[in-house]
Design a protein around this nucleic acid. Sequence first.
DNA 1: TATTTCTTTTGACTTAAGTCAATGTGTGTG
DNA 2: CACACACATTGACTTAAGTCAAAAGAAATA
Lengths: 228, 228
Amino acid sequence: MDIKNSLKYIPLFKGLFDRQIEELSKIAMRYSFLKGKIIFSEGDEADGFYVLLSGRVKIFKVSRDGKEQILHIIEAQEPFGEVPAFAGKRFPANAEAIEDTIALFFPRESIIQLMKNDPSIALNMLALLSQRLRQFTDLVEGLSLKEVPQRLAAYMLLISEREKTDNIELNINKKQLASLLGTIPETISRILAKMVVKNLIDVNGKRIKLIDKRALEELAYGAKLDIQ
Amino acid sequence: MDIKNSLKYIPLFKGLFDRQIEELSKIAMRYSFLKGKIIFSEGDEADGFYVLLSGRVKIFKVSRDGKEQILHIIEAQEPFGEVPAFAGKRFPANAEAIEDTIALFFPRESIIQLMKNDPSIALNMLALLSQRLRQFTDLVEGLSLKEVPQRLAAYMLLISEREKTDNIELNINKKQLASLLGTIPETISRILAKMVVKNLIDVNGKRIKLIDKRALEELAYGAKLDIQ
DNA sequence: TATTTCTTTTGACTTAAGTCAATGTGTGTG
DNA sequence: CACACACATTGACTTAAGTCAAAAGAAATA
C-alpha cells in the first residue's frame, strides 16, 4: 500500500517537496469502490475531496424522471469532488464508479493548511479548476448551440486526438456516451448509421474508423449533417 | 481615481493586508467600456484577468449561425476572464459590456507572485472558481435535463430570492434572458403568457409578480407546466 | 452449449421548441 | 411631437430529437 509513491506522480501535487508528499500520504484515506457504486450524491455534505488512483468515475446530474447528464468522466490521477472543499459545503452532483476504482480521500482542513504553507498546490488546484471551467464552457456550448451530430463529431475527433489514431475505440457504452452528449442511445445509433452512409466513418462494434476527418471537423464546427 | 479604496471591498481581495492592497492598486490598470463594447473574444490570448468595478458584463458563446448562449452575467466586484490566467492561455468565451462599465485589469504574473507570498488570495480565488463550477453545473442541468418553463421558473425564483421580494423586476431584456436560459425570446413570451393564464404570475412590462410560488417551485424542480 | 440478461438498433409516432413573418408596443432622438 | 428603431408578442409552420415498442446482437451466467 504505497500511497506515497502514487502521490508523487499526481499532477495536483507537482512541485511539492518529498516532506510534503510524506505528510499528504499520512492524511490520505484509501477507499475502494466496486463498479456501479455511488461514491457521493448531490447534496451530501463534504469535508474533503478525492483523487482517483485507478478505475474511472462519472460525475453526473439526474432529472426528476431519471434522465442522466454526465458532467465529467474522471480518469486516474485526477482529483474529483473538489468543489465543496472550497465553496459551499455540499456536492453539486453525483459520483459513481463506472469501473472498479481506488481513490484517496483528503480532508479539507489538511489541504487548506498545506496550501497556507506552500502555495504551489493552490496554484495547481487553480489550474485544475480553470481547466474544468473551460470544459464546462464547451459542454454548455454543445448542449445549447450545437445539434447532436455536431457534438458526436466533436467527441470522436477529441478521442482521436487524445489517442493519436483515426481508429478510435469507445471506452464507454452508448448509454453513457449519450448521457455525456446530452442525448439518448437511440439518437446516437441513428446518427452513427447516417454517418456511415455518408462515408464519414466506419463502425465495427465499439471501434470507429474516422474516414473523412475534414467533413467531421466541418460538422463539429457547426456544419449540417444533412445538406445534400 | 481611488483604486485602493475600491479594492478594499472586493471579496477576492478579502483578508489581504493594507500593504498588499496598496501594491495591487499600483499594478491594476483601469479600463472603461461603453455599453455594447466587446471586452475580449474567445480565443484571444490573455495575460491577466479583470475585476468589475461598475456596470455589467456578459460572458457568452456564439454559434456559427450567430445564436448566443450567455454563460454568466458579471456584477460589480466580481472578477471575470480568470480562466486563462491559470490554465491554457486563451479566453474560452467572449465578454461584452451590457452597461457602461469600469473594470480593473490585473496582470497574471503579479497576481501569481502575490499568491506565492500570501495564499489567502489563492484561497479566495479557489472559492470563486468553485462557485462558478457550481453555477455551471446548474446551467448544464437546466439545458440538458429541464424544459424551458422549468428553467424560467427557476430563474424567477432565483431573482426573487436574491432580491427578497415576490415582485421581481427583470434587469435584462428578453433577448438576453432567452440567451441566458438557452432559448429564444419568442419562447419566453409564450411561456410567460401561459404562466399568466395559469395564474402562476402576473406580468407588467419588466415587472413580474410571483403569485403561486408553490407551483413555480414544483415547476422549477421538474413538474410539467401543461398538466391540467 | 443453452439461457438469461443487457445493449444496440430500427421503425412509427409525438412533441417541445425553433423558424419565419406580421403585427403591436415602447422608447429615445432629432 | 413625430418619427424611427429596437423590443415584444402572436400565429402558422417546421424540425430535431425524444418516446415507446419490438427485434436483433452481444455478453454474461449457468
